[in-house]
Design a protein around this nucleic acid. Structure first.
Lengths: 341, 341
DNA sequence: TTGAAAGCGCTAACAG
DNA sequence: CTGTTAGCGCTTTCAA
């Protein structure tokens, strides 16, 4: 089967093939307005026979409406974002809206570019991760003329609506749980990403609560690139070599936490008796680990669902929910690496 | 910062603000044609000051060109596809083309829908996973009037171009390696997905090679849904409980393989002395496992890169590479769970 | 180097 | 229920 037709078909072709006016053909193809059953059938038959695919570009220009929702996230490799997407996608599939994904690689420059590119298609809404961005990006969002939902974080000033958790609060909560369990010599392992503001806020909340208890991070280690699982091992080894008396390791994500856990169990550490562990995100992966890693669930699916809901509602009624801020509560999963009974 | 302007700006607004004709404004904004430095600056200043974002819908309709490449894949949760995407994205970022992702959830119906939806935006090219699809989908691709690259598999009849590995060959190759190492009682663990044609073909190639050696799969187990790592554990346990004398387990993906590996090591099995293991995909994750799982690399990144290259070349020159088929060679990574020296 | 006119393929609005 | 008439905001083409 080889490409046959260079010129894509137009409404006119269907109109001629069916002997019905373009306008009526358009009505049939959009299920809009009343059309007699007879004409409907003739048109549908002709459209299908010819293999007509409507031109949404022309349709969008004429109707001034585009059923696309721009979804802008930092990365797809993270497991976290696909889950948000799937929440969005589930909700939107109940409407006629369609998500379109753009990726920023955690850089404000790329974000600006992607945002500009997507807005130039005049989407019906924008869902975008985080609250920190360039002035130019904020300006574009403010002028977009469509609903904007910033997601995954609520610690900051949204342009419009906002759904997420407070990462500062999440960091504090984890610190409290660790302190309650009597851990004192705490190490931190994270990513070398100054632009991951959510990780930064968790870290701030974490250290802040430790400080209140008169403690500080005893040692820390950062990585970038490579297999997170392998890096978790390496960093854990390096950290404990340098500071052997640590009794707790707080990882900025579950993947490196899992690597650390595997390493410690292999080396015969008593977890959590001798050393406690916790990660962040509550990823599904944890279920298969030899011991369940403590973590905190960032409500990723729900974030996606709520954000999509806000867009859908606003598309239906432009005044609904303007500037709405939804703070979700991250749940602590103590797993088997945090509680010393 | 609140949304200020309901009506998005048009070229005309910039034209009026700068005192330059719409046409010349358009030229400046697209770097097309000769414009005097003076006018160029005035226009750029005005556009930036107003925060003008061009309307690509109108532009695309007028110019009959869209710089979008439709990328259609079964899932984002799989880790495999984000890697392909990143290959595509890397290559396209060197052009003015932009990928747009659609997800089919491994169903032909959703694929048909997504494909129709994307084609109705008249993309410059289509990259789509797999070779098996409904007649309607094939027809749409054939009529699309743009380059089409089917990826990840070469065992079948492409509509146009094609880049991937032969999964049948991959299955055979793995079987050969297993046989060479003297394993005889082989179990298979996979997903319950009749529509995952690539997994099916690997399985066929695998059993076919076993058959030539007078062997067959001794037992098998399938799963669907849930944490793949956890499922890998459960299935492994179930399989060995039922058929304790297996000496090799072939997993249809690395994640369940990793779960199985963790389970076996925990239970004190001698791997690969007592029982050998292999997965498929060569995911990065494997580097952090206690013992490196044997696997086979599906060249995911390269597949993405090559596919994007084909599209880019064809956009530049419509006659380039038509119907090109590129078969990549999957590499076997024996890891530490296959070779008994 | 700049501008004016004529659509791109479709749909809103109105008339029959 | 069906058709006609005007654009949507931009770019192509041609003229100045």
């Amino acid at each position: 089967m080889k490409p046959t037709n260079r010129r894509p078909l137009t409404l006119r072709d269907v109109s001629e093939a069916s002997g019905v006016s373009e306008m009526t053909v358009s009505r049939v193809l959009r299920n809009k307005g009343d059309v007699s059953e007879a004409t409907r059938l003739r048109v549908q038959e002709a459209a299908k026979r010819l293999g007509y695919v409507p031109n949404k570009i022309a349709g969008a220009l004429a109707s001034q409406r585009v059923n696309l929702v721009a979804v802008i996230i930092p990365s797809l490799g993270n497991m976290v974002f696909p889950e948000v997407l799937s929440g969005i996608s589930d909700v939107l599939s109940g409407t006629d809206l369609q998500p379109v994904v753009g990726v920023t690689d955690y850089t404000p420059e790329k974000e600006e570019k992607v945002l500009f590119e997507m807005l130039s298609w005049r989407p019906s809404g924008v869902i975008i991760a985080g609250l920190e961005r360039s002035e130019a990006s904020r300006a574009m969002l403010a002028q977009a003329g469509c609903p904007v939902v910033e997601i995954m974080d609520v610690d900051g000033e949204p342009v419009d609506a906002c759904v997420g958790i407070s990462h500062r609060r999440a960091g504090r909560k984890m610190a409290e749980a660790i302190l309650e369990n009597g851990f004192k010599r705490i190490g931190f392992l994270g990513t070398k990403m100054p632009l991951d503001h959510r990780a930064r806020k968790r870290f701030e909340g974490f250290t802040q609560t430790l400080a209140k208890a008169g403690l500080e991070i005893a040692d820390q280690e950062f990585y970038s690139g490579g297999s997170a699982l392998a890096k978790g091992r390496e960093m854990t080894e390096a950290l404990l070599k340098r500071t052997p008396d640590l009794d707790f390791l707080y990882y900025s994500n579950d993947m490196i936490g899992a690597g650390g856990l595997l390493y410690l169990l292999e080396k015969g550490y008593d977890v959590p008796g001798q050393i406690g562990l916790a990660g962040f995100n509550g990823v599904e992966l944890l279920d298969g680990l030899p011991r369940k890693l403590a973590s905190m669930d960032a409500c990723r699916r729900e974030v996606g669902e709520r954000a999509a809901k806000i867009i859908a509602d606003r598309v239906a009624d432009p005044d609904a929910d303007e500037g709405l801020v939804i703070e979700l509560t991250p749940k602590l999963h103590p797993g088997e690496t945090l509680n010393r009974i």
